[in-house]
Design a protein around this nucleic acid. Structure first.
Lengths: 257, 257
DNA sequence: AGACTCGTTCCCCAGGCGGGAACAAATATA
DNA sequence: TATATTTGTTCCCGCCTGGGGAACGAGTCT
């Protein structure tokens, strides 16, 4: 489905794989039972049964009606994860207020596995609905968040990620190769912000600004909107200013922690 | 640690147990490595290593510095879970607005594994900090949410849950046995709301109202505050009215879905 | 009442997995 | 710089676990 950058081999444990296949399945479709899961995954019912028992005992999944769904425990896990990321509340506050102020979609992303993961998202008044969702992943080369984060990663990490990239053209404007990408990264470093000009989704443009702590990049904050409202002038002008100052606020608040 | 009501035996898979022990550990303490985890869980380093590889491949955990933390993927899982619960947005909206209006802590809980799980929580202006956290579990006998939900569950389920209960006195007022509990449930059904009079935490009182869909209980909404502000009169008066009307709004909006 | 589908249980046996130990790499100590 | 210590990684072995097949029991639908 998506490129797998850090593919290190090593031994991997089958039962755990199966368990997570079940979890993945239940994430997509709740309320299914043993038989259905067994069919879907190509395992015997008895195998799936044992797994469901284990997951149930662990309170990872819950019986509901006839079928299972993921347990609320995940909400707890998620909030722990947010805490672990550090400074989440600061990021949240700033993202929310920028969304409120501009009425557009504002997102904060960090790098994980050579992709951008959305840590927080807020939509203002006239929000365009986008498919992105907190916790999901997007390629780095086709999003302003991704390119901006990439631009400020240590050179060897950039190489590593770029080497594992598979450039899939999502629109006519998508970056299609390394040379184009490196050039873009250079531009971003020069101007201090990154642009996505309908490179990921047709009709949508974004600007992102990096959030750094000293010299290490923590993530990036972006603002997204329809090309009609997001003209080239505004992108490089006030919108870029918005994200840069928001990034700045986060940096200042996060500096001494 | 906590009572395990639905303890069905059945076969359980060891590797999966280990995997989740690791996840649990990383949830509590991020940034630890192979050796530390192996020590903590009493497994060999090689075993833990294989597991970490598996979890890393699955993007459940992420290398960070020297050590691992849980991945942002959990944020995505959590949002799926919320969607699966159904009507989360309605609940959220109502809880938020009640918290805003009253300035206190408002929570929504559902039953899971014979305990109350918090689905959403909002705190208003003068919020007392409580330990409860979205996704965490509390016993049903010592919380107003728990007792209120319990009161409206089908009789056989009440029996089942009550049978597995271990009454641990959390304060001087905690319910300590089944007869007391059943009496309380009866009172709740009569008056249409449930009270927690410093039964779970000293100095804190709550009122909860049930949220039902037809005759099945979906959960309950509660408001929590310090006993100083939450006098007996207010609890049974305006505060009870608040939660009941909020519950009503949720019921109305959720009815046709 | 019969034919279906569902979840559960039992048993078997192959190979997966946990463990120990050796290895490698990085950091600390002197 | 050499030595000692701690880290993560790899290898291999052998037990036993976990996956599969099939039988069973309980609902559910014709």
């Amino acid at each position: 489905m998506s490129p797998q950058p850090n593919k290190r081999p090593g031994r991997t444990i089958r039962s755990v794989q199966i368990a997570f296949n079940i979890i993945d399945l239940l994430q997509e479709e709740a309320g299914i039972g043993v038989t259905r899961i067994a069919d879907e995954l190509g395992h015997s019912k008895s195998t799936v049964h044992s797994h469901l028992r284990t997951l149930e005992e662990r309170r990872v999944i819950v019986r509901e009606g006839d079928g299972y769904r993921l347990g609320l425990r995940f909400l707890d896990v998620a909030s722990h994860v947010r805490d672990q990321i550090g400074n989440f509340d600061i990021v949240q506050k700033e993202v929310d207020s920028l969304a409120e102020e501009t009425g557009e979609i504002v997102q904060f992303g960090v790098e994980e596995y050579g992709m951008v993961s959305y840590l927080h998202k807020a939509q203002g008044e006239h929000a365009v609905e986008t498919l992105s969702r907190v916790g999901t992943q997007q390629p780095m080369y086709s999003t302003s968040l991704g390119k901006t984060i990439l631009a400020y990663l240590p050179p060897e990490r950039i190489e590593e990620i770029a080497a594992a990239m598979e450039y899939e053209p999502k629109t006519a404007n998508t970056i299609t190769g390394p040379e184009e990408l490196f050039e873009e990264l250079e531009t971003i470093r020069e101007q201090g912000y990154g642009i996505d000009d309908e490179e990921n989704i047709n009709g949508l443009r974004c600007v992102s600004a990096p959030v750094k702590n000293d010299e290490t990049i923590l993530g990036a904050i972006s603002i997204t909107g329809p090309s009609s409202r997001f003209t080239e002038d505004r992108l490089h002008g006030e919108l870029a200013d918005y994200v840069r100052s928001a990034a700045n606020v986060i940096e200042l608040n996060t500096k001494f922690s």
